[in-house]
Design a protein around this nucleic acid. Structure first.
Lengths: 336, 336
DNA sequence: TTGATCCAGTTATACGAATAACTGACTAAA
DNA sequence: TTTAGTCAGTTATTCGTATAACTGGATCAA
């Protein structure tokens, strides 16, 4: 900047003031042109560190994830966060800890030494987690999870509404016997499992249907369980006309079971998934109707909470999982 | 740091020298203890910007990708880069441009204003690309792609060797009629397609086998083509005993075709894939024997080239794709 | 004519750390 | 006793930017 000032024949302060044009038309057009020309001629680029040193806060946001980057379907969460940050000219300083608490603490420390404007603390799957202590005093947001202590603002998918909408989609198509192949036993308190189940029950209840325990199964979330339970359900005396699989991998297993039974989807049984797994759901035959986890939107929202003026409180913000309509749902056979 | 110095009753310079302990045992143990105590008491954390301002280079590496973060199987590339960077205490400043050249230029500019130690320029798939001009003068490495101009060092998968190893794996199992379902027509100059094909031919040639053009098909890389070509191949008068699918998605299609034909894998036909797509290959029945793109290793290596003392030259460094053995390969039926 | 106000800049300083160069006290060799 | 050398720190300066406070001249209202 000194060089620019020298080249333009003005003082360093003038260059700074012209470039940041804060003081409106304080300088003559002539002077401003001289400065701009010198800047271009020298290819001057401001030193962000000097600026930060002066201003106290960097144009960067820290992003800490356990394994977000390697979780196939969650990379989008970084994408969303970065997009939103860039809209305000900020960059993302990212770290994947892989769950290593020591690395987490150390890298967080380094981030703070870089005076990041805030920290996004992302979980690879929706759960209740404990936020590292070092985050107190720093503006931060928990992403795709919830702060167990309820102190830090959190952004997570609305699992209940997702489960509700899934069941609702099938009810609206005319189904009355709707099975659920859930992700995991409810004892785990996995919000995805608990929430989607709750939404499913709510939708059935609203439709005046009794919950049939025979139609609800709990697996591990793997496709083997999807296969096993779909097989059981479809070979039982009173099979369902539709299955809501609480994750796409389970749905894949269900597809295989239905195929092995020489039945067709959606002719013999409608299937709704959850997750909209990009490498799976669109490629199944028929394409799987499912719900998308709003990774991009959540990433955006988390950064937005950091950028906003007001200090965010410990609220949990739940975001809608949009329905991705494909071809695995139709009316049940009995329906006219 | 001034506060620490005041609390410890020494000068700021002393604090700095003690903390960086560069000058060995220059200070008495007593003084050093005073300083350490004050640091702990005040929770002092160094200001990275002041340090960078003084030293000229930040402890950060820029990572620019077109869509790496959203490409499901390539998130690992960031993971690898970040791991290696952290081993030297550096953080990654990441940006996904989504192919937007304007965003790319602007964010690169911001990165440079942060005095990054170097820039990793990653492509989402292996291709020849043009490096942005702004990178000249900055230490940089092209990752998962190659600099068309050959000026910037590049790290990419060894496609030829990969194709060779795949064909070799089948030859070693005793196969002599080995089909290839390639990713794309060769006109595209896609290194993955060209290279894997070349390796395939080389292996056949070494084994003294003539290349049968009927056994080589070129598709789009989608599973529909895998299905279509596998169906054609297996229903022809002289079907292959093994198929090398140059990508896992194609292999998936082939699986479906084989299943529809009431044939079994690997009993009736062995299949080898490529990519080791995490959400697919392990979950197929039987598990798909395939080759892994060394994303983590490549990410690590790219950062290593940036960190090493010597300025990297424009060489292309090709990295091995390891064989992931599962259950889709066995001896051909004719073999004893 | 005088004081107030505006104009178009400049000067001086702070941000926080690293380090070259210095200091004053003590020790050891000649 | 002088001189050189070590020890344990301190002083002063640098990095690049933003901005508060200032300056000297012109304009304007009373």
């Amino acid at each position: 900047m000194h060089d620019v000032a020298a080249a333009a024949g003005v003082s360093q302060a003038t260059v700074s003031l012209v470039l940041n044009s804060a003081s409106g038309s304080r300088f003559s057009e002539e002077t401003r042109k001289k400065v701009r020309d010198a800047v271009n001629r020298l290819g001057y680029r401001t030193n962000a560190h000097a600026k930060t040193l002066r201003e106290g806060v960097a144009g960067m946001i820290g992003f800490i994830g356990d394994t977000v980057a390697t979780t196939p379907f969650a990379g989008a969460i970084i994408e969303g966060a970065q997009q939103r940050a860039w809209e305000d000219g900020l960059l993302l300083l990212t770290v994947n800890t892989g769950g290593d608490k020591e690395l987490e603490a150390a890298s967080l420390d380094t981030m703070l030494s870089y005076k990041v404007a805030g920290v996004v603390y992302a979980g690879m799957y929706h759960r209740r987690l404990d936020v590292p202590e070092a985050l107190t005093g720093v503006r931060s947001v928990v992403l795709n999870s919830q702060d167990r202590a309820g102190r830090v603002a959190s952004v997570a998918p609305d699992e209940v509404k997702g489960g509700y909408s899934a069941a609702r989609r099938l009810l609206d198509a005319g189904h009355r016997r709707i099975a659920l192949i859930n992700i995991e036993s409810l004892e785990s308190e996995l919000p995805a499992a608990v929430g989607r189940y709750e939404g499913y029950r709510k939708a059935l209840d609203e439709a005046g249907l009794e919950l049939d325990p025979d139609l609800v199964r709990f697996g591990t979330g793997g496709e083997e369980d999807g296969y096993k339970y779909a097989m059981e359900l479809m070979t039982s005396g009173n099979p369902p006309t539709a299955i809501f699989c609480a994750n796409d991998r389970g749905a894949w297993g269900a597809y295989q079971a239905v195929s092995d039974l020489r039945l067709s989807i959606p002719g013999d049984v409608s299937i709704v998934g959850f997750d909209n797994q990009a490498t799976l759901a669109p490629f199944l035959r028929p394409g799987l109707t499912t719900f998308e986890l709003p990774f991009v939107a959540m990433g955006r929202r988390a950064v937005e909470l950091i950028l906003q003026d007001a200090e965010p409180d410990g609220r949990v913000e739940l975001m809608d999982c949009p329905l991705i309509e494909r071809n695995s749902v139709t009316h049940p056979k009995e329906m006219p």
